[in-house]
Each structure stands twice: as structure tokens, then as C-alpha cells.
Design a protein around this nucleic acid. Structure first.
Length: 693
DNA sequence: CTAGGGTTAG
């Protein structure tokens, strides 16, 4: 304890008599220890239980002084602790995140002669039960409250409702609520948050509307719950009404409410409105920043999310574990390895709690950046894992082409008695399809229903179609679709169409495209695949016709786009990019690259290019694909030994795939490319996908 | 001495 304050600066030692002035009773260790000493010296501490209580209360007010408060409570000289003294210390335990200590103190209190639990005690104990999800203890405390006649207390009742809500027993909470004669806003808030916590968002909105109808008073807390629920169900209308009310009543200073509104707007897709509220806040705490960042991440505006994260750091607000979840998932989407790695080291340096959610985000981030070893390391460093965590790693293994290891992980997961979900099986089946493990795939698909009672969804059927189709069993894949118990979706037909492209199957390809068009959600990629199928078997006229059809229907080709990160900044390249400051150098580098790999045997594959131009133009066009520009940029900017990592929005085309293999050899570089559904690790002239993608 | 609220992964 610090005692470096000169004696002259001390408050005058209290003589026996009136209680010491309240002014110095701030939670400042210097004043407190000095005052404590003075009270002992004057004998006042033992003489006046009030002084003791004040001192204890002051110490308990600050979490850093909690050990001091405890020793004050435990060690003499002091009067026997009264009921309020117990209550103060219990609340301090709860506040400091030690609900179990609060419970222990309650038990001790039951046997103490100097104190007897009152309504304050019971409310606090119930809150501890909420925090610990201790339903049985909570019920016991309720029985105690009934015996002691404390059930009429509004604080006891609302704490009890919260306890049941936290323990996922909403109906018990509702029974209590209904049993109360005159419910005020506090009780309404209790039941509303009970619904909110358990995901009954419609009920939250309904109850609020009911309050409005009968003209009941509501407050800020009510509105926070209502707005949060609006965000979850996408009820922008009610949410906007609340925003208007907040504006009108001048509640803009309420940070929690503003944060809830930001979250609501973001979840309803109104990022601009969310940002305007955020910018208008007088003070933004870590939760407000986190809400805005997660808004951008969830809206798939990951670059904005990262930009806001760096603004947050400039503003001097320390991120917490929740912030980092959103930041990491933005990094995962962008393939921003440097930024994410920095986040990981920050987490370690600041010892942020590696919760299941944060750990899972970390595993997912590394896996989505193609760093599967680091993903495994992160996985192993986690103290507690759940089904999501295992699933993230299994999926990561699958997309990185390590199907066998993914399946081994799945069996370890089962050994660890972690229940797989339907998503886990998507990962398992993806592992099989990316690694061409046909028999295993069929087996797991059957076992999913038989052994785990999980009904296959469209995604699973899609995986099987993909698995069979890519393995060359295109007819069987087609038959599989025809006998499926669900209506085949575009996704499923699209999987079939891509395998037709791999195996040059015109007939089934045509059928698949027909089905996709009839379902009315065709992409440019579907037409391009079909056109490529025709081109690959020499049906040039049909290929041209499909392209024309696409044009006539006004379907724009999705521009290819590649991302590459450099010194923590994510650069974006488009095919035929004309918007980069170092364009000339980049195109020069591309030319040099193409010349060098041509000497190593590269032959440009121009079969898939628009047909109305001459051969040279086709070659140039292919050489300006976004990933070639990005790789050239990487070669220019990165250290000679550094791995080039990029991620792109479409699938890698055949030409870029063979070119990249040769680049990895000629330039002696590892290149990792993430396309829209898997990874390619290029090294020494070969690719981890074994040309099977 | 008293409640209740906002941000989070596959």
C-alpha cells in the first residue's frame, strides 16, 4: 500500500468525537490507509460501527482496493460486521467478477451473530446466481426469501426474474412477472430483458407495443432492449421510431442507448445512419467502437471495419476481446494476415481473455489466411473449445486441401465428446470433396442422419454433388440431384455445372444451366462456365451464342478482383486495372513475369477469352487478370523470401493457375491464393490442390 | 448500501 504522502498533507487525525469528514473518503489508497490508521489510533474504528462501514464502503468502491476491503472486513480491530457491511462486501465481489465469493459470504452471513440477510443481501445473492447460471442455488435463495417474507421487495423480485432469465428459464420468469400485482417499469424491464437474453425478440417488441398501448411508462433501459431486439429481427420501422423519440427527448447523451441504436441500424443494413449516430456521439467507449466495427464487418465492409479500428487506436480507446472478434473476422475475410497477426500479438501482450468466441475467431482467421499450422497452434492454445471451434478448424483443413487431416480432426472431436452440428458436416463433406475422398464422403453423409440425427440441408446435398461431380461421376451426381428429397437450389445446380466444366460434359451442363435460369437467380459466372464448356469441346458457335445471350439479358460479368496486403494495408486489384498509382511499373513487371515463365514453358490459355479479338489481344487480356497484377505487385514490393498471399472473389482460372505454378518456380516464391472456396499453395512449380479444384 | 441495458465466432 502506498504511504509516500508527506504527513503534513494528511487530514488532521480525528480525535474522539464526531465521525470524520466524508470528503477524504474517496477510493484513493493514500487517503484510505492514512485514515484507517488514524481511526485505529483514535479508537474510533471499534467505537463507531458507522465509521467502520464508511471506511469499508470506500475501499469496496474500487476493484483495485478489494483485497484491502477484505482485510478490513476480516482483521481487527473492528466492530463485528453488520448486515450492511456484509452487503457492501458482497456487492464488491459481484462487481469485481467474483460471484462465487459473494455466495460464500452469504453462507457465512447465515451463521453470523452480528448480521442477518435482508432484501439487499438477497437481491445481491440472486445476481450472483445469475452471473454463475446457478439455477439450483437461485431456487434455494428464493425459498429463503419466501421464508423471510422478502418477496414483496421490488429489487428482490426483479433480481429473481433476472436470475431465471439468465438460467434460461423464461417461463419461470414470466410466472413471477404475472404474479406481481402492480408492475412498474422496473419489473417490465426485467421481463423484457429476460426475453431479450433468451432470443425471444418478437416478444420484446410485442411487450413494448403493449406498454405503449396502455400508456405505461418506459425508460432508457426499456428502449435499449427494444432497439436491440429490433436489430435482431430487422424491424427498422420501430427502431427508427425509437431513434426519433431519443432525438426528440434529448436522450442522445445516453451512451448505451446510442450504442444499441448504432447496432440496430447496422443490423438493418443502414450503415450510413449507424455511422452518423456514431459520429455524433460526444464520447465513445470501447463498446460503441466495437458496435460500429462489428456493423461494418457484418455488412461485409471489412476495409471500413479495419479503417475504423485504426481510428479507434488513434482515439486512444483500448480494444477488448469483443472488439478483436470483429477485427479478426474482418481480417479473415480480407486475408489481411499482417493485421490479424498483429491483433494476435496484441491479445497476448495485453492478456485479453481468450474466450471461446475470440479463440474461434482466431482459428478461423488463420485458416482463412491459409496459415493452417498457426490455426492449429491457436486451436491448441485455447483453454476451452466448443463445437464451433472444432468446426472452424475442420473447415480450414478442408479448404486448404488437407482432407485427411480434417477427417482425423473430426474423429478426435468425437472422441472429445463434442457434438457436431450441421455446419461441422459441411466441413467434413467439403474435406471429402476437395480431396476427392468419394467413399468417405458417402459414408459421412449417411452417418450424419443415421448416427447424429441431423437432417441434410441443401448445403450437404451440394457437397455431395460437388464430390461426385468433381470426381468425374457427373452422371451419378445428376441422378443424385434427381432423387434428392428437397427441391434442388441454384447452388446445387451450379455445383453440377462446375463439374461439367471440369469434365467437359456438354449435355448435363446444358441441363444444369437451364435449371439455374429457370430458378431466376443466374450469375454471369454460370453463363461463362457454359460458354467455356462449349469452347473446350470446340463448339465455338454455341460458346459465342451463350455470351451473346448473357449480354442480351443484360447480365454484367462480375469483375475479377484480387486483394493483397502490404505493411498492414490491403490493396485491391481488378482485371485491366487502371486506377493504381504505380500502374506502369506493375504492367511492366507483368510483362517481365510472362516473358520469364514462357521460357519455362508457359503457354497462355486463351480458350476461355472473349472470341471476337485476335490471339495477341487474348494473350494480353489474360495477362491482365487481377491475380497476375497482384502477384506482380507482390513481387515488386515484398522482401525476396516473403510468401505472396492474395485472395480473390472468383475461382482461379486455368491460365492463372498454370502461370502461378511457374511463377512460384521461376521466382522461387511461395504463393498462397485463396479463391472463393478454397486455397492454393503454390511452391516450386506445383500446387497443393494437385490441379484438382 | 439497493435493479435493469449496448458490442462477439463456424
Amino acid at each position: 500500500m502506498a504511504t509516500a504522502v508527506p504527513t503534513a498533507a494528511l487530514p488532521t487525525p480525528a480525535r474522539a468525537g464526531p465521525a470524520p469528514p466524508r470528503a477524504p473518503l474517496r477510493a484513493d489508497p493514500r487517503y484510505l490507509t492514512q485514515l484507517h490508521a488514524a481511526l485505529i489510533k483514535s479508537g474510533e474504528l471499534t467505537a463507531s460501527p458507522k465509521s467502520f462501514h464508511s471506511l469499508l464502503e470506500a475501499a469496496a468502491a474500487s476493484p483495485t482496493l478489494l483485497p484491502y476491503a477484505v482485510s478490513l472486513f476480516r482483521l481487527g480491530p473492528r466492530p463485528p460486521p453488520s448486515t450492511p457491511c456484509y452487503n457492501v462486501l458482497m456487492r464488491a465481489f459481484l462487481h469485481a467478477g467474483h460471484p462465487e465469493d459473494a455466495l460464500h459470504l452469504f453462507v457465512e452471513m447465515l451463521g453470523a451473530a452480528s448480521a442477518c440477510p435482508d432484501q439487499h443481501t438477497v437481491a445481491c445473492v440472486l445476481k450472483s446466481c445469475s452471473r454463475m447460471c446457478a439455477l439450483d442455488v437461485g431456487r434455494g435463495v428464493q425459498a429463503y426469501a419466501i421464508k423471510r417474507g422478502l418477496m414483496a421487495d421490488r429489487f428482490v423480485l426483479s433480481s429473481l426474474i433476472h436470475m431465471y432469465a439468465s438460467c434460461r428459464d423464461v417461463s419461470a420468469a414470466r410466472l413471477l412477472f404475472d404474479a406481481v400485482e402492480e408492475n412498474g417499469v422496473v419489473m417490465w424491464n426485467a421481463i423484457i430483458t429476460a426475453y431479450l437474453k433468451n432470443g425471444y425478440w418478437m416478444e420484446v417488441v410485442e411487450m413494448f407495443k403493449g406498454m405503449l398501448e396502455v400508456g405505461l411508462a418506459f425508460d432508457e433501459v426499456t428502449l435499449v432492449s427494444v432497439v436491440t431486439a429490433c436489430g435482431r429481427i430487422g424491424d427498422a420501422k420501430l427502431g427508427t421510431w425509437v431513434a426519433g423519440y431519443v432525438d426528440e427527448k434529448g436522450l442522445v447523451r445516453s451512451r448505451n442507448l446510442m450504442t444499441a441504436l448504432i447496432d440496430m441500424y447496422a443490423k438493418c443494413g443502414e450503415l450510413g445512419k449507424a455511422r452518423r449516430l456514431f459520429d455524433g456521439m460526444q464520447s465513445r467507449d470501447v463498446v460503441a467502437w466495437s458496435a460500429m466495427i462489428s456493423g461494418y464487418t457484418q455488412a461485409d465492409q471489412c476495409r471500413e471495419a479495419l479503417a475504423l479500428f485504426s481510428e479507434m487506436q488513434l482515439a486512444g480507446v483500448e480494444p477488448n476481446n469483443v472488439t478483436m472478434v470483429s477485427v479478426l473476422s474482418a481480417c479473415a475475410v480480407l486475408g489481411a494476415l499482417e493485421t490479424g497477426t498483429w491483433v494476435h500479438s496484441y491479445i497476448r501482450r495485453k492478456r485479453l481473455p481468450l474466450t471461446i468466441i475470440l479463440g474461434t475467431a482466431l482459428v478461423d482467421f488463420y485458416a482463412k489466411c491459409g496459415c493452417i499450422d498457426e490455426a492449429v497452434e491457436a486451436f491448441e492454445s485455447m483453454p476451452v473449445k466448443n463445437s464451433w471451434t472444432w468446426t472452424a478448424l475442420i473447415k480450414g483443413m478442408a479448404t486448404n486441401g488437407r482432407g485427411r487431416e480434417a477427417l482425423e480432426l473430426f474423429s478426435s472431436m468425437r472422441k472429445a465428446s463434442v457434438e457436431p452440428t450441421y455446419v461441422t458436416f459441411i466441413g467434413v463433406l467439403m474435406a471429402c470433396s476437395h480431396s476427392c475422398l468419394v467413399e468417405e464422403g458417402r459414408r459421412h453423409f449417411d452417418s450424419m442422419t443415421q448416427d447424429y440425427g441431423i437432417k441434410p440441408r441443401a448445403e450437404h446435398y451440394g457437397c455431395i454433388v460437388d464430390l461426385l461431380g468433381r470426381a468425374g461421376l457427373v452422371d451419378e451426381a445428376y441422378q443424385f440431384i434427381r432423387t434428392m428429397p428437397i427441391e434442388p437450389s441454384t447452388v446445387i445446380w451450379r455445383a453440377l455445372l462446375s463439374s461439367c466444366a471440369v469434365h467437359k460434359n456438354v449435355e448435363i451442363g446444358e441441363e444444369a444451366l437451364k435449371q439455374i435460369i429457370s430458378l431466376n437467380s443466374h450469375h454471369s459466372g454460370d453463363y461463362i462456365l457454359m460458354s467455356n464448356i462449349y469452347a473446350s469441346v470446340g463448339q465455338w458457335k454455341d460458346a459465342a451464342m451463350i455470351r451473346k445471350e448473357m449480354k442480351d439479358r443484360g447480365i454484367e460479368k462480375t469483375p475479377g478482383c484480387s486483394l493483397i496486403e502490404l505493411d498492414g494495408v490491403v490493396f485491391e486489384f481488378f482485371a485491366e486495372d487502371s486506377d493504381h498509382p504505380q500502374l506502369r511499373e506493375i504492367y511492366q513487371k507483368v510483362e517481365e513475369m510472362i516473358d520469364r515463365i514462357k521460357m519455362a514453358g508457359y503457354i497462355p490459355n486463351t480458350a476461355d477469352v472473349r472470341l471476337e479479338v485476335d490471339e495477341h489481344e487474348k494473350e494480353v487480356s489474360v495477362s491482365h487478370h487481377s491475380e497476375k497484377l497482384a502477384i506482380a505487385f507482390g513481387l515488386m514490393k515484398l522482401d525476396p523470401g516473403a510468401t505472396i498471399r492474395l485472395s480473390k472473389n472468383l475461382r482461379v482460372c486455368t491460365d492463372c493457375h498454370s502461370a502461378t505454378k511457374l511463377i512460384s518456380k521461376v521466382y522461387n516464391r511461395e504463393i498462397v491464393v485463396r479463391d472463393w472456396n478454397r486455397f492454393h499453395h503454390f511452391k516450386d512449380g506445383t500446387c497443393s490442390c494437385n490441379d484438382y479444384w
